[in-house]
Amino acid sequence: MSRLFRDVDGGELFPQGSVVCIGAFDGLHLGHRALVRHAVGRARVLGVPAVALAFEPLPREFFARDNPPPRLMLARDKVAALRELGIDGVGLLRFDARMAAMTAEDFVRDMLVRRLGVREVWIGPRFHFGNRRHGNLALLQAMGGELGFAAGEIAPVDLRGERISSTRIRGLLVSGEFVHAAELLGCPYSIGGRVVRGRQLGRTLGFPTANLRFPKTPALSGIYATWVHGVFEQPWPSVSSFGTRPTVEGVEPLLEAHLFDYQGDLYGRHIEVEFVAKLRDEEKFNDLPALTAQMHRDAEQARRILSEHRLRATA
């Protein structure tokens, strides 16, 4: 069972020691996965737990609270994905004013050494941490020499010469380049969660939806052709709206997936919505009949795209 912890304060978590990797891990793209797998491999060699340290909220969200940057992945999905990669302990550290003011040296002593008993710590290229981003590989190596741990940096990960980064992936999603984004992520981009009850307006318009909350600034918004996973063994074709629903005065971002030709009740079920193609941006309509007419056009277009997508996948 993987261990989850949130605080720098507290007692020793891994008396036998640990191998630690640190990063934002937003999206868990191929570069992140290389770092995590390297740490897990080293932990298995040393016979100690592998620990991943991340922050919630992300530091850039804390420093830009009035205009937070887009998020690829919610915290719950990040923890689940890290566990699937073999991580034994996940530190989803609270990033608040106190954490922002903590020096890199104090973070090493209090978190890495005292709480985690770090034997090795691994970071990605150009990673910085601590107040004023003073912490880096050189500091980790210097302190490791004093405090008895090793520190290293994995080599940059690229794809056909292109540097892989969460920023690049966000840009690809905004421009609807889902195939390219999937290459950098190592899998198609999707958002998962438990289906919640909405206002049920779609049902009255003939388009019932399975709704997933996304309480962060999403990396994309609009109307999409999508596959829904988790209902049947095979992905189910759907058309999805992701955003703040301007015609019905939505506020919190909501992902609404209409599953074609499906009549069942999905409330409480965990599903995954995979994005295939963008149909259009969100749009505010003058009335519900105009919205309904556009929804029919969106559904027809999504059906065509997904039919072609399925044929390509089986060719």
Rank of each mutant, 00 (worst) to 15 (best):
F5P: 03
E252W: 01
G176W: 01
V121E: 10
L116R: 05
P68T: 06
V179E: 15
P125E: 13
F232C: 10
R168Y: 11
P289G: 07
G145D: 02
K78A: 08
L92Y: 05
E105H: 10
E12T: 12
P208S: 08
F25K: 02
A225G: 10
G243Q: 06
P49D: 01
L140K: 05
V113R: 09
F107W: 13
A257I: 02
R133A: 15
Q234Y: 09
I22H: 05
A315W: 14
P49W: 01
E120T: 09
G230W: 03
E153Q: 14
L212Y: 08
L185I: 00
G268W: 08
E308W: 10
F260W: 09
I305S: 11
K78F: 03
R170F: 06
S175W: 01
V179H: 13
I191N: 00
D66V: 04
P57Y: 02
F149S: 03
V231N: 07
L255N: 07
D66W: 03
T314Y: 09
L173Q: 08
D110W: 05
L53Q: 03
N131Y: 14
R76Y: 07
D265I: 07
H134C: 11
N131S: 13
L220H: 05
N131C: 13
G161T: 08
I123W: 09
D26S: 02
F5V: 14
I22K: 04
V51E: 02
S2L: 06
P15C: 05
W227P: 11
D298A: 09
G268V: 07
G206N: 07
P188A: 03
I223R: 06
G171R: 13
G152N: 06
G41R: 04
D88S: 14
P215D: 12
G193E: 00
R114H: 13
H134L: 12
A24K: 14
L85K: 07
E283I: 11
D281E: 14
M99F: 14
A225C: 09
R133Q: 15
E153L: 02
G186V: 04
P253D: 01
L46Q: 12
V118S: 12
I87V: 15
G17I: 10
T204Y: 04
A182S: 15
G148K: 03
V20M: 01
F25L: 03
A101N: 10
A100R: 13
Q234W: 07
F5Y: 15
T217M: 12
A257E: 04
V19H: 06
L311F: 12
I22M: 15
A81E: 15
T204N: 05
G152E: 13
E146C: 04
L92H: 09
F55T: 09
R280L: 08
G89N: 00
P156F: 06
L172C: 03
H38V: 00
V157C: 01
G222H: 08
A52T: 00
S165Q: 10
S165F: 11
R269W: 11
L13Q: 00
R98L: 11
S166C: 08
T247S: 09
E282H: 07
D158P: 01
F149H: 02
R133H: 13
A100G: 10
S18E: 00
C187V: 12
T314K: 12
P237Y: 04
V228Q: 02
G135E: 01
R60M: 07
E162C: 08
R44Q: 12
M73Q: 14
A24T: 14
V108T: 09
R65E: 12
V248H: 12
V19P: 04
G135M: 05
P69K: 02
F14I: 00
L139R: 01
